[in-house]
């Protein structure tokens, strides 16, 4: 059981790290939002799943209640995070921000 928990946590940490590197390395606004929106959601999902499994080591009413609350966190994060990313991209498009191209970089 603990091995699965550690695997999930490491998986989540890897995606958080990749998301952080992506935010730093990507060339412009829109492509930076790509790792920020997607990888964080997946990493949160994996890490909270690991914590839920760790929490269910001993099964009682209390731990099951806490696990349900953690699942609610996953549910709301996976609902709200992509929407927030969509909204930011939408605001950028409406404000008229041009997307990045290779030609622009050369000049």
């Amino acid at each position: 059981m603990n091995i699965i928990v550690i695997a999930l946590l490491v998986f989540g940490l890897f995606f958080f790290l990749a998301g952080g590197i992506g935010i730093m390395r990507m060339p412009d606004f829109y492509s930076r939002l790509h790792p920020a929106g997607k990888l964080d959601t997946l990493a949160t999902l994996a890490m909270v799943m690991g914590l839920v499994l760790y929490n269910l080591n001993e099964i009682s009413l209390g731990t099951i209640l806490v696990s349900i609350k953690m699942f609610l966190i996953v549910f709301f994060v996976s609902l709200a995070s992509p929407t927030a990313t969509h909204t930011i991209v939408d605001a950028g498009m409406r404000a008229g921000l041009r997307h990045w191209t290779k030609k622009k970089q050369r000049s």
Partner: peptide
């Protein structure tokens, strides 16, 4: 925005 409206109505 339709996506915003729907998700906020749920949330």
């Amino acid at each position: 925005d339709l996506i915003n409206k729907t998700v906020c109505r749920i949330l």
